[in-house]
Every structure is written in structure tokens, then in C-alpha cells.
Design a binder for these strands. Structure first.
Length: 552
RNA sequence: GGUCUGUUGGUGAAGCGGUUAACACAUUGCCCUCUCAAGGCAACAUUCAUGGGUUCAAAUCCCAUACAGAUCACCA
């Protein structure tokens, strides 16, 4: 009995040939050096920080080379699929400006000429290629039950042999075709296994774009290619899909590094061009007990990419952070080129850190802080509004109601060479400015910060004299401060800090004490941005209200 | 256990045979200053996991050990 007959029996519904598919998916018409790569997640509904990082890199290198970035959904494992899981991934990607040239663009809609882009819709293709392998004696059906496989493993453990289905342990490898046909006809379930021709004692060199040349023993394990339900495993799907979709570069986590020899063997069996591989270090975090581990979606809220969106961390800041961990020379480049964007930076595979990166939230927030400080007040307004619309309705309505006023608040100490950096993310802006809005400044339930001056009469005195005799909305900042000093002197405090430091006993206190009284009465807080601007923005009428309430 | 990868300060991270071991974040101190933020200036690894070796010279090359991670599924 021939392999052809066996193959026909195993894949009776295959009516196309490998050649048909090769014709169907021709070489892409792209310029020399264009990188075609992809994001290939399971439809789990969300994107993990580590995946986002590799997606970001993929999008970037495709952009840099006028290549293609496509989204393929790997749904060969039902357990990983979630309802509307594709949409969730697309949303996360969209939130971070990672757009897709080809593949899925929504839960149900796909674009491009190299599809289908959902693996379970590609079963016919996999079967065609599987059939080819069987016909050419490069794969065979294996009827071993999981119990039998267990036994093999136990035996190997006992003998301290290498684990796996290979060599003499691959017992179904040498079944006759007659026997195979017989078993299939009996209805015995089977998987398709690679008939590996590798030699464990020979070396194969994997040329990884990140790590350089790595030597492995050749693969000699007869890996499962197609599961008994007819669905391929990752390894097989990877080879068939990335070949047919003309992927030039495979970017994936380093957990795949050790199965690359298997993938190379498969590519060679089919006579396919081998794509370039870049195995990216894992994104890690430090555990409570101090050891490093992979960022886990279960334990770490920051692992899910939606977290950053919810926190109101600017997309651009996340991108900047990803770029700094993706290419270690980016940070200093950006430092020298603050006016340029990530698009102007040339990504380099050799500048990827080889060891896994420890995820550093502080650093991300610092980048975010710097980024926000460089925005125009109106941009801060727009982005905060967008954030609040989704996550803080109360603030959203205030922003709408007091648009110009809000922009003016955001503009305090902004348009200067070294702007303020107190907005960490859009999600914390309200915490910084709430007291500027009467709706949030609930005068009956306020907690006022501590002040040095505690005497009620003294406080009332300061505020009354100030508002009645000194405050003038039209004052410039210098004039304003001059008046504060005058008031300070008049009441027996030191207007000049130096004088005060030299002879503290000559004074009741100093300017700081006076301005703190005004500041706290106005905002309830002892620490705020430029008091001059706050007074000006709040305006005399509201200042009076707040002062009076405070004195009472 | 086999195979592969990695190990530089609190953190990220450069360095690729001769450097005072960059830079950034964090921390601390001082200065500036109406408070805060920012900014300026300092401090912060006598040492690059450990032990050997090669060399006039090693964080950099070699070997061992330790530690960490990945992988060895009909999961991806």
C-alpha cells in the first residue's frame, strides 16, 4: 500500500494541492527589504503587556520598511477563546495606535488577500499540507493513547532518558501502511506526527536577530502536527501560515526559542524559505518574595493593557516607554530629539535587550509626566475630557461646563521653558485641580491643611486686610507679590526670607506663613501651583466666599 | 533530569580587551523659591553572581560552579 493511498484515506476531503495554494498566495509585491510581520494572539479578549510590546515592535519595523503588519488569530485551542475575544484584542491595539494592515479589523470582519486569518477557517489548508507530508513519507498517523504516552514518559524518566516521542520510543513510526489503514478503518483516533529525520547528536544553528547565532541539537522528536480532532498544533500552523502569508520576520517571545529547531525542520521539509526570527525577552516583574517572574495577567493588573487606558496614562507615553524597553538606545536618542516622534527613530533589532525587562511602572509614569508637561493646555483639556468621558462623569461635566476656565487652569506654569510636571496621567488631574471647581470644593465638609498660624483672629485679620486693601485683579504678578510683602511687613512678619533667617526672633513669622494662610483659605491645601494664578482665576467674588467660610 | 538563555548600583540599562563603569528612573543632601512642582548642583557600583584560567592589562575572552528564566503537551 502506498503513502498516497494512506494519505487519501486520512484526508479524503482534500481536493486541492499544495501547488494550488502556492499559486493562490503569490509573493507580495513590496519593495526590497520590506518587513512583513504579524501579531498572532489567541482570541482571549485582551492584550498582555508583553504582547503589546512585541506588537508595537512589529508595527514599528513594518512602518520603517514600508512593510505589512497583519493580525492573525490563533484559535486552535478552544480553551483560550473567549466570546468577542477578537474585538477585545482589536480594541486594545487601537487604544495604543497599533493599526492593522491586513487580517481582522473587527470581531467578524477581515481584510487582505492572504486569508483566512482565523486558523479554524484554515483547516482545509492545513490538511492539504498535512496530506502532502504523508504522501512524501514525512509524517505518519500515530494511534498512541494518552496512557501509552504516559508509559513511555515514565519509562524515559526511569531510565533517565531524554523525554519525548522519538527514535525507539516512537513506536507507531514504523507501522506498516496496511496496519495504519486497518486501524483508521476501525475508527481508532489518531494524530499526525512528524517523521523527524533530525539527529540529536548533530547541531543546528538558529540565527536569531536578537541573540545572534545559537546552537541547538537538531530536533529528532516526532512532534504532533495535527491533533486527533483535525486541528493543527501551533508549530504546524505557524509554518504553514507564515509561509503562505509571506511573513518575512517572526517576532515572538523567547519561550519559543527552544522549539525553533522543530520549526526549521518543518520549513525545510516543505522546502519553504525560512523567515527571520527575533525572540524577544519576556516582560517580567519582581515578586513579593523578590524573585523575577513573567508578568502574569492573573496576579498583575498592570499586565492587561487596558489598565493603562483606565489609568489615563497617555497612549503616547506608553509608546515612549515601550520604545525605551524595546530599543535601549531610544531613550538617549529621544533626549536629544525631543521635538521628533517615535516615527523618526530607526528601530534596530540588535539594540533589543537580551534579558527580560523588568517592568518599571515608575519609569512609565515619569515618561507620562514629562509628556503631559510638554502638551499645550488645550491638548491636556481634550485628552482629559476624553478620559473623563469614559471614567469620570462628574469631572467630564465640569470640564464641559467650564471649558475655558479649565484650559486656563491647565495652563498654569505651563508655557515656560521648564513647565510644571504635576500631572502624572489624565486619571490624576482631577486630584490636582479639584479645588478650582466650586462643585467639588464642598466648603461644609473640607479638611484644611495644617498652617503655622493658628490664631483665629490673626487669620481673619490677614484675610480681611488682604482682600479689602491689597487684592487687585488687575495686578501683574510682580505687583501682586509686592503687595503680599507689604502686608507681611505691616503685620510684623518678615517679607524677606534672608532677614527672617538671620533674626527669626524679630518677627512673628515670614511671608510663607502669610501666603500659606491665603492659600489654605482659598484651596484648603498648603501646597498648590502659583497662588497668583489661582487667585486670578477664581476671581474676587469667589475668593471672598471662600475666605468668609474659612474665617467662620 | 535534558536542551537553551541570561546574571553590571534600589530599578531599567550602556559598555564587546586598557573608561574616573555612560545614561535614565528612584532615593538623599544643598541651592533657588510665597508653598508645591520644576530647575540647578552634589552624593549614591573600589566594582560588574562566585571560583579559577588566558593576558602586560578582563565587566569584557575561556572553563567550572551558583542562581534565575524558558522549553521538553493532542496549550499557544
Amino acid at each position: 500500500m502506498t503513502n498516497k493511498e494512506l494519505a487519501d484515506l486520512m484526508y479524503p476531503n482534500v481536493n486541492k494541492t499544495v501547488e494550488d495554494y502556492e499559486k493562490l498566495y503569490p509573493k507580495r509585491d513590496l519593495k526590497q527589504g520590506a518587513i512583513v510581520t504579524r501579531f498572532a494572539p489567541s482570541p482571549t479578549g485582551f492584550v498582555h503587556m508583553g504582547s503589546l510590546c512585541s506588537a508595537f515592535i512589529g508595527r514599528k519595523v513594518a512602518n520603517d520598511t514600508d512593510g505589512i503588519y497583519y493580525l492573525r488569530i490563533e484559535d486552535t485551542d478552544q480553551k483560550r477563546s473567549v466570546e468577542n475575544g477578537i474585538q477585545g484584542i482589536i480594541d486594545d491595539l487601537n487604544n495604543f495606535d497599533i493599526n492593522i494592515d491586513e487580517g481582522f479589523v473587527s470581531q467578524t470582519e477581515e481584510i487582505g488577500n492572504y486569508g483566512p486569518y482565523l486558523q479554524t477557517n484554515r483547516l482545509e489548508i492545513y490538511h492539504t499540507y498535512a496530506k502532502y507530508l504523508v504522501e512524501n513519507d514525512m509524517a505518519y498517523p500515530c494511534f498512541c493513547s494518552s496512557e501509552e504516552l504516559d508509559e513511555i514518559r515514565k519509562e524515559q524518566e526511569k531510565k533517565k532518558d531524554r523525554l519525548g516521542y522519538y527514535g525507539k520510543y516512537a513506536k507507531d513510526r514504523n507501522l506498516t501502511n496496511e496496519k495504519r489503514v486497518e486501524l483508521i478503518k476501525e475508527g481508532k483516533p489518531y494524530v499526525l506526527r512528524l517523521k523527524s529525520t533530525g539527529d540529536f547528536n548533530k547541531k543546528i544553528v538558529v540565527n536569531d536577530l536578537v541573540r545572534g547565532k545559537i546552537e541547538f541539537p537538531e530536533n529528532d522528536i516526532d512532534h504532533v502536527l495535527i491533533k486527533s480532532d483535525g486541528v493543527p498544533v501551533y508549530h504546524f500552523a505557524h509554518v504553514v501560515d507564515d509561509h503562505l502569508m509571506k511573513t518575512t520576520h517572526v517576532l515572538r517571545g523567547e519561550e519559543w526559542l527552544s522549539s525553533t529547531p522543530l520549526h526549521i525542520e518543518l520549513f525545510k521539509k516543505f522546502n519553504f524559505d525560512i523567515p527571520k526570527y527575533a525572540h524577544l525577552g519576556l516582560v517580567m516583574k519582581v515578586d513579593e518574595n523578590g524573585s523575577r517572574r513573567k508578568l502574569s495577567k492573573r496576579k498583575d493588573p498592570e499586565a492587561a493593557v487596558s489598565y493603562y487606558h483606565e489609568q489615563g496614562i497617555p497612549v503616547e507615553a506608553v509608546k515612549l516607554y515601550l520604545m525605551t524597553i524595546a530599543n535601549f538606545n531610544f531613550e538617549s536618542w529621544y533626549d536629544d530629539n525631543k521635538d521628533k516622534s517615535i516615527d523618526d527613530f530607526k528601530f534596530d533589532f540588535k539594540k533589543i535587550s537580551e534579558s527580560g525587562t523588568l517592568f518599571d511602572l515608575d519609569k512609565l509614569l515619569n515618561i507620562s509626566r514629562n509628556y503631559i508637561s510638554r502638551l499645550k493646555a488645550s491638548e491636556v483639556y481634550n485628552q482629559t475630557l476624553e478620559y473623563a468621558k469614559e471614567y469620570d462623569q462628574e469631572f467630564y461635566h465640569l470640564l464641559i461646563k467650564y471649558k475655558d476656565y479649565s484650559i486656563a487652569i491647565f495652563n498654569i506654569e505651563r508655557e515656560q521653558k521648564k513647565p510644571r510636571k504635576d500631572y502624572e496621567r489624565f486619571g490624576n488631574i482631577k486630584d490636582e485641580v479639584w479645588y478650582m471647581y466650586d462643585e467639588l470644593f464642598d466648603m461644609d465638609n473640607l479638611k484644611y491643611d495644617w498652617m503655622k498660624i493658628t490664631d483665629k483672629n490673626e487669620i481673619a485679620n490677614i484675610l480681611n486686610i488682604y482682600i479689602n486693601e491689597y487684592y487687585d485683579e488687575t495686578d501683574s504678578k510682580d505687583e501682586w507679590f509686592e503687595k503680599i510683602k507689604q502686608l507681611t511687613n505691616r503685620l510684623g512678619y518678615a517679607a524677606n526670607m534672608k532677614d527672617y533667617k538671620e533674626n527669626p526672633d524679630d518677627f512673628k513669622g515670614n511671608v510663607t506663613d502669610i501666603s500659606t494662610v491665603i492659600r489654605v483659605a482659598l484651596t484648603s491645601k498648603a501646597q498648590t501651583p502659583d497662588l497668583y494664578m489661582l487667585l486670578k482665576l477664581i476671581g474676587k467674588e469667589r475668593i471672598l466666599k471662600r475666605f468668609n467660610k474659612f474665617i467662620k
